[in-house]
């Protein structure tokens, strides 16, 4: 996991639910590369065509609410997003993102700092996010250790695999 991130931002609104991220009709698709073609298609059709690896998504309140579909963060990860940042996240979306190794960062009030196409710089361990375009900056509580542990392992799969092998140095961190 990269801990210093910099990328172009895409901005979304409040209460963006997982049905809008990936519609119910695509839920039988498993391949993330296929899924990413439909991500946000009802909200911003440009996103699936133009988003590039390293871009950063900025959401409002309760981002990812609604259905528990992991398809939603899977599709965003397949796009290659460096991180999803939002004022606040819905619980399952948040856990799903972390579990698949996509940094989800909760920063109260972050949405109002950014406009589409601005450049964001994020210092994950430092708990700092800057709008490089405007110079504005805000801080956030650094991610708890067990969450950083999952992200550093590259997701829950790798984390559990290491732990089952007894290879982990701190088995109590994260999901044993």
């Amino acid at each position: 996991m990269k801990e210093l991130l910099e990328g172009r931002v895409w901005c979304l609104g409040d209460e963006l639910d997982t049905d809008q991220l990936i519609a119910g009709k695509y839920l039988t698709i498993i391949d993330p590369q296929e899924l990413k073609k439909h991500v946000l298609e009802n909200v911003d059709p440009r996103f699936s065509r133009e988003a590039r690896p390293g871009d950063i998504l900025i959401g409002g309140e309760n981002f990812g609410c609604g259905s528990s579909r992991e398809h939603a963060p899977q599709a965003l990860k397949a796009v290659g997003l460096a991180a999803v940042v939002a004022n606040s996240f819905a619980r399952i979306f948040y856990r799903n993102s972390i579990n698949i190794g996509l940094p989800a960062i909760e920063v109260p009030g972050v949405r109002s700092l950014f406009r589409p196409e601005d450049i964001a710089r994020i210092d994950l361990p430092g708990g700092r996010i800057q709008n490089v375009t405007t110079g504005e900056e805000t801080r956030f509580p650094p991610l708890p250790d067990h969450i950083l542990g999952i992200l550093r392992a590259g997701g829950l799969v790798e984390k559990v695999r290491q732990e089952l092998r007894g290879a982990s140095t701190s088995p109590r961190e994260g999901l044993a």
């Binding site: 856990r95 799903n96 579990n99 997701g155 829950l156 799969v157 559990v160 732990e163 089952l164 999901l175």
Partner: peptide
């Protein structure tokens, strides 16, 4: 409590969840 499939896999593997 609802969880996603990757987490479900971890529960299947370990029987535990944080």
């Amino acid at each position: 409590v609802g969880i996603g499939p990757t987490e479900f896999a971890a529960v299947l593997a370990t029987g535990r969840i944080w």
